[in-house]
Amino acid sequence: MTRPGVIPVRVLVVEDDDDLRFAVVAELRSAGLAVVEAADIAAADRAVREGEHACVVFDRMLPDGDAITYVHRRRQEGWATPVLFLTSLDKIADRVAGFEHGGDDYLAKPFAMAELTARVSALCRRTGSGRPSVLRHADLEVDCARREVRRAGVLLTVSDKEFAVLEHLLARAGQVISRSELIEHCWDNSADPMSNVVDAVVKRLRAKLAEPRLIHTVHGRGFRLGAG
């Protein structure tokens, strides 16, 4: 369970065995990670293109192909998200192929859940190290380490969810972020995508940030933080 005041790190788990995927997802969520699930490469590709992840856990042999082929192709396109291959293919040649095709870690089945969680957490820390501790846009400043928000130098009081949404929008300033992505990133899939929870948080943020408005609604697509 995510601890109060901590923004969950988002991880994608791609595994076609329903029972194993359920167990892995439950274990990673109990470690405080926000987990998105996929059962094949096509679903994984949609998830990868729709949102950011700190790490992706890939089973290799999926119903629509070998995941190392997909990862290799995406690496050639510049995709840099850390990948852990979780697979029963445990020969040395299989491990070498995993790394040669863009994998960052390789864990053979059967495995200990504690080791999987430790390896995923290590890859997530590698991703997080590349983000500045302080995010800025115009006169808005978000200190991710101290969890402080300032507008024009004035310290604002925001809730955990407001901070999570604002941090995600600011980290992707200028880009349109969908409501579903915000829910997956900030609510750990616990909110109904059809509900108005995101709109309610954005409304409160706008009131606290005051004018000139920084968070804009892009009708039919989501929200964008930036100049009007």
Rank of each mutant, 00 (worst) to 15 (best):
M1T: 09
T2D: 11
R3I: 07
R3N: 13
V9Y: 01
V11G: 13
L12S: 09
V13D: 05
V13T: 08
V13I: 05
E15T: 00
D16K: 03
D17W: 02
D17V: 06
D19A: 15
L20A: 06
L20Q: 10
F22D: 14
V24K: 11
A26C: 05
E27A: 15
L28H: 01
L28A: 10
R29L: 06
S30I: 00
A31K: 00
G32D: 02
G32F: 02
L33M: 14
A34N: 07
A34G: 15
V36T: 14
A39K: 10
A43Q: 11
A43C: 02
A44W: 00
A44D: 01
A47T: 04
G51W: 00
E52A: 13
H53G: 07
C55N: 01
C55I: 02
D59Y: 00
M61W: 08
M61D: 14
P63M: 07
G65D: 04
D66P: 02
D66K: 06
D66G: 09
I68T: 15
I68M: 14
T69K: 13
Y70A: 15
Y70R: 13
Y70K: 11
G78Y: 02
W79N: 09
A80S: 15
P82I: 00
V83N: 08
V83T: 10
L84H: 04
L84Y: 01
F85A: 10
F85K: 09
L86S: 02
S88F: 06
L89H: 13
L89F: 07
D90P: 05
D90T: 12
K91P: 01
R95K: 15
V96E: 13
F99W: 03
G103E: 03
L107E: 01
P110D: 00
E115H: 02
T117N: 08
A118V: 03
S121N: 12
C124I: 04
R125V: 07
P132H: 04
V134P: 11
L135A: 09
R136C: 11
H137W: 14
H137F: 15
H137P: 04
H137K: 10
C144D: 06
A145H: 10
R147W: 00
V149R: 06
R150L: 12
R151H: 05
A152P: 05
A152S: 15
V154W: 01
L156S: 07
V158K: 05
V158M: 08
V158Y: 05
S159L: 04
D160S: 13
D160R: 03
K161V: 12
F163R: 11
A164L: 00
A164K: 00
V165S: 07
L166E: 05
L169F: 01
A171M: 10
A173S: 15
A173F: 01
Q175T: 09
V176K: 04
S178V: 00
S178N: 08
R179N: 14
E181Y: 02
E184Q: 13
N189L: 12
A191R: 12
A191W: 00
D192Q: 10
D192Y: 06
M194R: 15
M194C: 13
S195H: 05
V197K: 12
K203G: 14
K203C: 11
R204M: 10
R204L: 12
A210M: 05
T217M: 12
V218G: 11
H219Y: 13
G220I: 02
G220M: 01
R221W: 02
R221F: 11
R221I: 01
G222S: 05
L225Q: 08
L225H: 07
G226R: 03
